[in-house]
């Protein structure tokens, strides 16, 4: 399923932040993880991911280091900064609120009212 560009623009960064929450990852690994864990829904084009990472780095949400992998190959690893953690927490809250609203509206399958959703 292909997601609208505008939706992807909002979901992509928070997805990347979430993936980097626990440990650092490199570019190909991120693309692979996004594709597999979202069952292809949030699969980012490779030409999109790297600019997104650079933007997030510019905003101070992530930081990167270049070093050799165990295989000996040089890679750039990305990890979350303190600002990135805060941003992730904030955006998670917003996504939860959106999900609840979608649920309440019947856009998402499940309880039909907010009270039911919260019960």
């Amino acid at each position: 399923m292909r997601i609208e560009r505008e939706l992807m623009r909002g979901a992509g960064p928070v997805a990347v932040l979430k993936l980097l929450e626990r440990h650092e990852m490199y570019g190909y690994e991120l693309i692979d993880a996004l594709s597999k864990r979202s069952e292809g829904v949030l699969a980012l084009g490779q030409s999109t991911l790297y600019p997104m990472l650079y933007n997030m780095e510019a905003k101070g949400l992530i930081e990167s280091t270049e070093r050799a992998a165990p295989s000996g190959r040089e890679r750039r690893y990305y990890r979350l900064t303190r600002t990135g953690h805060a941003q992730l927490a904030q955006q998670t809250e917003q996504w939860v609120a959106i999900s609840r609203a979608m649920l309440a509206l019947g856009i998402l399958p499940g309880p039909t009212t907010t009270q039911e959703a919260l019960a």
Binding site: Y26, G27, Y28, E29, Q46, Y50, E66, R73, E74, R75, R76
Partner: peptide, 9 residues
């Protein structure tokens, strides 16, 4: 370097 690493991966 990043793109090379990406394709190598």
């Amino acid at each position: 370097r990043e793109l090379i690493a990406h394709f190598e991966d």
